[in-house]
Every structure is written in C-alpha cells, then in structure tokens.
Design a protein around this nucleic acid. Sequence first.
DNA 1: CTTGACCTTCCAGTGTAGTGGAAGGTTGAG
DNA 2: CTCAACCTTCCACTACACTGGAAGGTCAAG
Lengths: 129, 129
Amino acid sequence: MRIGELAQAAGTTAKTLRFYEDQGLLLPAARTASGYRDYGPETLARLDFIHRGQAAALTLAQIRQILQIRDSGTAPCEHVRELLGMRLAEVDEQIAELGRLRETIAQLRAAAEDVEPETCQAGAVCVYL
Amino acid sequence: MRIGELAQAAGTTAKTLRFYEDQGLLLPAARTASGYRDYGPETLARLDFIHRGQAAALTLAQIRQILQIRDSGTAPCEHVRELLGMRLAEVDEQIAELGRLRETIAQLRAAAEDVEPETCQAGAVCVYL
DNA sequence: CTTGACCTTCCAGTGTAGTGGAAGGTTGAG
DNA sequence: CTCAACCTTCCACTACACTGGAAGGTCAAG
C-alpha cells in the first residue's frame, strides 16, 4: 500500500502521514526498491486509533505515549484509563471556565444594547467593554 | 512615562507593550531625545481597555479593530455590540461542542473501567479507545 | 518517448500572544 | 567615573497540528 492510497483510506493526506512518522506516531514504513513507503493494512487500524484519540481530544503527544506502550509489548489500558480521566477533568474545567466567560460576555452585551453612542467617552475607548 | 513604568502600572511587561505597538494596538509612542518611548497617562486607559477585551475573550485582532475605529474618530459602540454578539455565539458553540466531547470521553472511560488487560487485541492498539 | 500522477527529502510558514536573549545606548546615584 | 538599572532594535523561539512549495526521482499509459 503506497502512502497516497493509505491516506485516502484513512481520510487524511500523504503529507500528514509523513508528519506522523516524523513525530513517532507511525513506525517507519518499509520501503520499495525505489524508496517508496510500503504500508501493510495494520497501519490503517493504527490511524483509526489515532483518529479515535483525537476525537477524544487527546493530543498527539498523548496518543504517541499510548502507541509506544503498545509497541513495547505492554497493554496500554491502564494508561488509557488514566489519560481519559485526566481529559475528562480538563474538559469539565474548560466547560466551567467557558460558562463563566459566557456570563461575562452576556452581561456586557446586555449593557451595550439600547444605549446611545453620544454617551461614549473618548478616554475610555468604549464604555461597554 | 517610560515603558517600564507604564508596564508596571498596567500590570504587564515592557516587552508586551512593544509587541502591542508592533501589532497596531498602541499608537507609536512619542520619543525622548535619546530615543526612549514617552507615554502619556491616556495610554493606561487604552491598556485597560485591551485587558477588558481580553477578559471577554476577544482576540488582539478584534481589539485592534475597535481601537482603530475609535482612533478614526467614530464611536465603536456598534462594532463592539456586534463583536460581543459574535463572541457569545462562538462561546455557546464551544460549550456545546465540549459537552459532546465530555459525553464521548465519559463513555469511553466508563467502558474502560473494570475490564481485564487480557482482552486487549494487539491489532486494535487499545479496545477502549 | 513523453506526459502526468505519484513519490522522495528538506525547508519554511500558518495562527495566537507573547517570551528570551544578544548587542549596544542612556540615565541617575554614589 | 563607574555601576546597575533601564532603554533600544532585531531575530529566534514557544505549543499545536499540520500545510505549502521547491527540486528531483519513479511508474504506468499511450
């Protein structure tokens, strides 16, 4: 399987696959006599895993960690559970923070409704913010 | 007022103020005979405005737009209302997206609880993700 | 034999909001 | 006069996940 074919099958680009190899997410591929990368079908499963990790908002660095544990012959389950727990806590924190931001913005916008431009003071740039 | 003094008064650094000038957020400062930047007190109000904009999660590019409207002599109220409305919609979208992500991760983590590592298949990298 | 689609490497840039550091000039106190 | 603390410009770098493009090699069809 050549790189373009694999990229299409995985829904990504050849450029990205080379990048992943460079970043240690894909193992260095076998090469044909002429130097083309030659992938086995198992690489597609690996790319699917990477995509699932991204769907769970893991960073490429975190996904690489899991992959390296797997590549070393150990089952990465423990680590995956840990990462998912961490991500869950982070996402909860992000949601809470965005909720606070939403309140701030909503109040500012409410205050900015139905006010006349004449009340604007040049020194303050804008009284509504 | 020299740059370090202003930076301290505004709760930021001289480096950042030069960066802001470079980005068009601060007007080029007057200079002393020896080339030092010399700020008037009105710059502090401008920096406060920038900080309020950042607290509302406006980007520096958006804050610059408002500042340029103000600098052109027009009251930026209309534009500020528009930007705040946009930010509100964006934040709502982000919150919704994070909520969906939270569900995805929570389900994955729940499935990963109390399962034995033996069930892991090498080909799939990790069955829980 | 040529054409076009594919592949290779390597270097550079995207956007965000700064930060770090080098090399050199200025200011004010002792 | 010297010294520290300040200032100047300029260039590079951070994290993140790619993307663009140049220069050149390979493969299959016509």
